[in-house]
Design a protein around this nucleic acid. Structure first.
Length: 569
DNA sequence: AGGGAATGGGGCC
DNA sequence: TGGCCCCCCTTCCC
């Protein structure tokens, strides 16, 4: 069956970049092949050092503490092997647990979860609780989940991008609820971007709303011209997207945030007696439309509520996660307004009843091995839960009314914590009626024809199967932030400071990473250039091409039959 | 070009 | 509880 095309025509690929031109032409890499060589050279003798003879001849002295210049592994500091990149392939330290599944005894390269077609699924421990309650809810809610899985249509081809639009890494993305081509973005500096990716050049950045990390944004359900934001500066904002005029609805650091002052390195003045340990940061924004309240939580485990009509704080902060620990996310149930899902650094995701919201009164505590970056109800029926945890596992609970003691599935997936990356969050496809398709960026790289690339993965969470991994040779940075469009077949990715818009394209070629057999999707005919997008010749690039002049198409991508994004399951 | 900085989380005492 | 140290595939700027 021919690959489907729901997304019809593809506009030209357009790249927008801030004028801040920083020509990056330096890194033309003629020497793809040399990379290979220096790998082989590791048999270096010149590093062995005179230490050897010293120790043989002068036995008398105690074994000196001299630093051997012999190469050691940068991870375990032991000689005999070296971790790190060899060319575009990363070699793990064999002394450490697998970087992917965290189990000892093998490395990422040989990890069973990496080579498996079912991408690292741990079978669910079978449960056998069938209460009548469960039965009722199954009938009421479960029926909303389509039993028939539609063919997944994967946005696999970069359609346009804004490079250096933000000045710091992207931290959140949100599609406009009614205007199809509008994407808003937040960054680490607290700036809010509004981009019309239909008209690539129309974008605005508001820089005076927040002082640092904009963690979450949500459109106002009653007025989609305004957007709420929760920031690590400890405030919730309400911003008019047209004017950029912003209101602060909550401020947890009313005495100022010393960090901000220090960063802007102003103020030789009085030292405030605040320290990092008392700064309050806000995460996880969502709203309960029923009650008309906005919810956000902080890094001390507290939940705050703001009345959306009066814009005033309502009620007292409620401890919803371990005291002093960060709440990383909040999500209100799409159908049942009384249900709230939270997750945090205390290794739990918790389900709450909004009618009985007080410390310790959660309905369920979903236990994880590590910090939970995100927890979401499924987008349409809300009957499933998906979490992303720093133990490199996605967890799925198939029915919130069933036995929640353990997840229905654990899917091993590389989305490690890294201090300098926005935390990865697996996101549902809001259009998928079967509530199976999920998108999540991948941390570990793949040697992709000599370039280390970090794909964005599409996973069928009902099976744990990797449906597609999409990548682009021009995106060499990790893409931890991903969002699927509520109506269109569009994926938005935030990768470092750049934002990319992907659309489906059937005319894609099969491509194999250098080291193994997995199938990946990649653009065809693009230049393979390790570097950045170029736009020095203007913006109108041909479809399928990012560069213009100096486009050296090197080794063409492997030819094979088209792999439409049509995987049925 | 290579070193440093960026304010996150865990484990240990 | 708090301070200290470590850290595995970062990224970008100086």
């Amino acid at each position: 069956m021919a690959p489907q095309t729901r997304g019809m025509s593809f506009p030209k690929v357009l790249i927008e970049r801030d004028s801040n031109s920083e020509e990056s032409s330096s890194e033309e890499e003629e020497e793809d092949d040399d990379v290979q060589n220096d790998v082989a050279e590791e048999s270096d003798d010149e590093h062995v050092e005179e230490k050897d003879e010293a120790s043989t001849s002068t036995r008398i002295r105690r074994e000196p503490i001299t630093i051997s210049l012999k190469k050691v592994c940068k991870v375990c500091k032991k000689p005999g092997h070296e971790a790190g990149f060899r060319g575009a392939t990363y070699i793990d330290c064999p002394m450490k647990p697998c970087f992917l599944c965290k189990m000892p005894g093998h490395t990422t390269m040989t990890c069973p979860h990496r080579v498996a077609t079912e991408y690292g699924v741990a079978p669910a421990p079978h449960k056998s609780t069938h209460s009548s309650l469960e039965y009722v809810f199954e009938r009421q809610l479960r029926c909303r989940v389509s039993a028939i899985k539609p063919a997944f249509l994967i946005p696999n081809k970069v359609n346009c991008a804004v490079i250096r639009y933000h000045s710091r890494r992207i931290t959140c993305l949100e599609f406009h609820p009614t205007r199809n081509n509008i994407l808003i973005s937040g960054d680490k500096k607290g700036q809010l971007g509004v981009w019309d990716y239909g008209k690539v050049h129309e974008r605005t950045v508001y820089g005076n709303i927040h002082g640092c990390i904009l963690n979450n944004m949500k459109f106002n359900p009653t007025n989609d011209g305004t957007v709420y934001g929760a920031s690590s500066d400890g405030t919730i904002s309400s911003t008019d997207l047209e004017t950029g005029i912003s209101l602060s609805l909550l401020n947890l650091n009313p005495n100022g945030w010393q960090g901000l002052e220090r960063v802007s390195e102003s103020v030789g003045g009085a030292k405030v007696t605040m320290g990092p340990s008392s700064w309050r940061m806000l995460y996880g924004l969502d709203m309960n439309s029923d009650k008309g309240i906005l919810l956000a939580a902080d890094n001390f485990g507290l939940l705050y509520m703001v009345d959306m009509r009066s814009n005033n704080v309502t009620g007292k902060p409620i401890l919803i996660h371990k005291k002093g620990s960060k709440v990383t996310g909040l999500h209100c149930h799409p159908l049942q307004p009384e249900l709230l899902l939270s997750c945090g650094n205390d290794h739990f995701a918790r389900i709450w009843d909004m009618r009985r919201l007080e410390a310790g009164s959660s309905i369920y505590d979903l236990s994880h091995k590590r910090v939970v970056n995100s927890a979401y109800f499924s987008p349409q029926s809300g009957s499933k839960i998906l979490t992303t945890s720093q133990d490199n596992r996605l967890r799925v609970w198939d029915s919130i009314f069933g036995n929640l003691d353990s997840p229905s599935r654990e899917i091993v997936h590389s989305h490690d914590f890294n201090r300098h990356l926005t935390p990865f969050r697996a996101e549902w496809d809001p259009k998928d009626a079967s509530e199976c398709l999920v998108v999540v960026g991948r941390y570990i790289s793949e040697n992709y024809d000599g370039i280390a690339l970090h794909p964005v993965d599409f996973i069928d969470v009902s099976k744990g199967q990797l449906v597609a991994e999409v990548m682009d040779p021009n995106i060499t940075t990790i893409s931890p932030v991903n969002k699927l469009h509520p109506r269109d077949d569009v994926l938005a990715s935030g990768s470092s400071r750049s934002i990319f818009i992907w659309r489906p394209q059937e005319n894609f070629e099969l491509k194999r990473p250098r080291d193994e057999n997995r199938i990946v999707l990649c653009g065809k005919g693009e230049k393979q250039r390790k570097g950045k997008f170029e736009d020095d010749s203007g913006d109108d690039f041909d479809n399928g091409t990012y560069g213009s002049k100096s486009l050296k198409t090197k080794k063409p991508f492997l030819k094979s039959k088209a792999y439409g994004s049509k995987r049925k399951c």
